[in-house]
Amino acid sequence: MTHQPRGHGHEDAHGHGRRHGHGHDHHDHAPAVTAGNERRLRFVFLLTAGYAVVQAIGGWWSGSLALIADSGHMVSDAAALLLALVAYRIARRPADSTRTYGFHRVRVLAALANGAALLLLVAWIAWEAVARFRQPVEVMAGAMLVVAVIGMLVNLSGAWILSRGDRGDGNLRGALLHVIGDLLGSVGAIAAAVGIMLTGWMVLDPVLSLLVALLVVRSAWRLVSESLRVLLQAVPQGVDARAAEEGLAALPEIAEAGHFHAWTLTDESSVATVHVSPAPGVDPLLLPKLVSGWLHDRYAIDHVTVQVDPPGQLDREHC
């Protein structure tokens, strides 16, 4: 993204000069859209979601809790692919007068709902697995093996399709990692099915289901925690508000810096506001570009609103 901050000014209700520095020339916070990558994601999503249904039915029919657990894992990854597609679709919808940042938070809400549902699924899998440890359930290992092999082929196909896309696309890279995780789950299901066929140890099924549940709970908790961070408008990862204020105040052109706030808008875009005062002899009109450029270089914040206050104003407010 080309960083070309700009500024404009007006007087606020208290007569303070306010300047806005932006990390780009348009109020566009949407992720980049690549038609080829979107097509690949759509195809792999349909493949993953379709197989998740087949796997759930196969797990119910064969009595394999491991297949049902892995279908939950597939659902979580299909949801991740769907969220990536939603990001592409949202990128085409312009902001309007009532939603000036567009519709990006729809993706966050979807991620939160998805993560919460997956945590409930993990709780059920764990409960059922403990029950099967106490009283093993007969598993049709042959059917389990067939379904697991199909899953491995599906995931290999998905990984191959995604690997041929644009490697610079964050959505595509994340989707590829999810598919590789599904591939490992399918390999584990194959191993469990073969183990049951050779040894008759039905306990291998709940053991694998718990291992898969751990993979699901990890991704589900990440979805929930990251969604809550965004909705609570916590600072982006790696940003320290106090350190940002101190760093800005240390610049020779700035006398004071304060009231720094930053939050995440999308996975690829963050927003910040800050108040600064010019050092003696410094043109206040130079500060918005200076501040937005410094925050972009230091914290990758690409949209900054800068309010320039009279010298001493911030010190009086702190007192």
Rank of each mutant, 00 (worst) to 15 (best):
M1D: 14
T2C: 07
H3D: 06
Q4W: 09
G9S: 09
D12R: 00
H14K: 14
R18M: 15
R18I: 14
H26R: 12
H27T: 03
H29P: 03
H29D: 07
P31Q: 06
A32P: 06
A35Q: 15
G36V: 01
L46N: 15
T48S: 07
T48E: 12
V53K: 01
V54I: 12
V54M: 08
I57W: 04
I57M: 10
G59S: 10
W61P: 03
A66G: 03
D70N: 02
G72A: 11
M74T: 04
S76E: 09
A80V: 11
L83I: 12
A84I: 11
R89H: 12
I90P: 01
I90R: 06
T98S: 09
G102F: 01
R105N: 14
A110N: 02
A116H: 08
A116W: 13
A117G: 10
L119D: 08
L120W: 05
A129T: 01
A129C: 01
R134A: 10
E138P: 11
R164W: 14
D166L: 10
D166S: 13
N171Y: 07
L176G: 05
I180M: 08
G181D: 07
L184P: 02
V187L: 02
A189E: 02
A193L: 04
L198G: 09
T199Q: 04
M202Q: 12
D205M: 06
A213H: 01
S219Y: 12
E226Y: 02
L228H: 06
V230Q: 04
Q233P: 03
A234H: 14
A234Q: 08
G238K: 03
V239C: 11
D240Q: 04
A241C: 11
G247T: 03
A250W: 07
I254C: 05
I254V: 12
H261S: 14
L265E: 04
V274A: 08
H275N: 01
V276W: 02
P280E: 07
G281D: 10
D283T: 04
L286D: 12
L290Q: 03
G293W: 07
W294K: 07
L295A: 06
L295D: 10
D297N: 04
R298T: 13
Y299G: 04
A300L: 02
H303C: 04
V308Q: 05
P311K: 04
C319T: 15
